[in-house]
Amino acid sequence: MKKWLNIKNNLAAPLFMVFLIAAWELITTTMAVPEYILPSPSVIAIALNENFSLLVEHSRITIVAVLGGAILAMTLALVLALAMDRWRILKQAFYPILVVSQSVPIFALAPLLLIWFGAGLLPKVLIVALVCFFPLAVNLVEGFSQVDPETIDLMHTMQADRWLIMRSVQLPSAMPYFFTGLKIAATYSVMGAIIGEWLAARAGLGIYMLRAMHSFRTSHLFAAIIVVVFLSLALFKLVEAIRWLAMPWQRKTTENLKE
């Protein structure tokens, strides 16, 4: 009985989606909505299918920028958060600036990066890194500040060196915070890359979207949106998978021996 209820719950969202798509199809065809205003789902599906290899090619370019930017942001955030944890003066000096920097809209910064670095891969990577950096850095700083000082004391009684304390206490205890930040960053990252491509690029999903827009091929625009959604979801799942691999102690708790 319970299982059946679970299945019903799991089916609720997809069923509703099917209903929405059906309604959309019905309205656009019966009311003869022009295709450049709102194409019907079937037209979008055809566009997606016909342009699939082209979309994959553009996606590849966008993905490179996303991964490059994310890795750059992770590295910088980790180094900066560790430094801020180590030297309190650095945290006092830098943390407020970090927060204020977030109120500068990325749309305003992106053109600057393009002026400085041209229309290649680099400005895109930097824009992605910028949007990913903040959630990562803030969460890591929080994670490091939550380390129990008693555990550090304990490590001192073993005469552990700084490196051992870092890898066996600080990094693992900040890990949940890191992954919280990374999940947020993953959802921002694709958006960052596309903004970069809108402003100036030679290829990528953003360019594909611009071209579709200029030629009023709205169905192609929708096809690109579907790909973007899919990419974002895939990235989110990827982060969850890495988290699962990186934190084995959090998955075994279902089986326990507590008396």
């Binding site: 008693e150 555990t151 004391d153 304990l154 009684t157 066996s168 693992p172 890990m175 102690w249």
Partner: peptide
């Protein structure tokens, strides 16, 4: 050989 009140075993190990 210091052992504090809470066991302080690291949950990630």
């Amino acid at each position: 050989g210091y052992m504090p009140q809470q066991d302080l075993l690291f949950p990630w190990k």
